[in-house]
Design a binder for these strands. Structure first.
Lengths: 147, 147
DNA sequence: ATGGCTGCAAAAGTTTTGCACTTCT
DNA sequence: AGAAGTGCAAAACTTTTGCAGCCAT
């Protein structure tokens, strides 16, 4: 099984203590999401996975996306679509800017979001575990096209 | 038809020029969303609508949610659920903080988000039309319960 | 060996669509 | 008349679940 290199030793222990196993399918899914820049929808993960392991089932993809999410290895995003998107959890928080003209998604980092997080946590008495900033607009090309 | 008071004169004109009509069902749906603080899922709008107009159909609710969204009168939110939520478009931008323990949703205002919007617009060459900040965490009560 | 994992098929849940009919302008 | 809206039923889509057998630890 080609699981080596995908998970750090620490993460492997974490999985074990959660009673989870690293199977071929799980490693494959994690690998697919890791290698793609950006974010994939469940069915995109599925079709990419089938290219490498034709027998894999869609339920397995969904179950593993849930498992990896719960483990904190991947992040689930909610765009305007009706379905979810997934990406590896980045070490540095980043956010998304979606073009309403062409659907392009641009990632951006922002220190302000950390400040915002602390401010709200204090004000509302919450222990904040995550921030997701989602902007919509029109990219440079789409603006030009509209004129 | 009890449409008066729900839409400003300006908004009525806006609808007209978009080729839209203000029907009883549309006014009802807009009224329901306006009166509720917070955010409703489509099926909640549906069941509230049926209390006042038993014959209304679910498709009408969905079609009108789309229409009102396109018009910019309501806003579609994407939480972790599999379905969408709707709220009236507020005059002052506000965001959402969801408790992972009990599901409670707290709204908050934040000037930083405006600053962030301008910064990103400049950096990325986008014309930004909207920002949505979504935080997750644990509320004060759920934190206490966990200890 | 035992408890998690998989594939398959079926189910569940949300949202969309086709169609004939009605309603507004 | 012509365009938009509605209700109903059916369809489309994404996601979840039950189950029997399989596999990692």
């Amino acid at each position: 099984m080609a699981t080596k290199g995908i998970l750090s030793k620490g993460k492997q222990k974490e999985m074990k203590s959660a009673g989870l196993r690293m199977t071929g399918q799980r490693a494959l899914i994690l690998d697919i999401i890791s290698q793609r820049p950006g974010h994939l929808a469940a069915d995109e993960v599925y079709s990419l996975a089938r290219q490498r392991q034709p027998g894999i089932s869609l339920s397995t993809v969904y179950r593993n996306l849930q498992a990896l999410k719960k483990l904190g290895l991947i992040k689930e995003l909610h765009f305007d679509d009706s379905h979810h998107h997934y990406e590896v959890k980045p070490s540095i928080e980043h956010h998304h800017l979606v073009c309403q003209g062409c659907g392009k998604v641009v990632e951006f980092g922002c220190e302000l979001s950390q400040k915002m997080m602390q401010e709200i946590a204090r004000k509302k008495g919450f222990k904040v575990t995550g921030v997701e900033v989602h902007m919509t607009g029109y990219c440079a090309e789409c603006q030009r096209r509209q004129e």
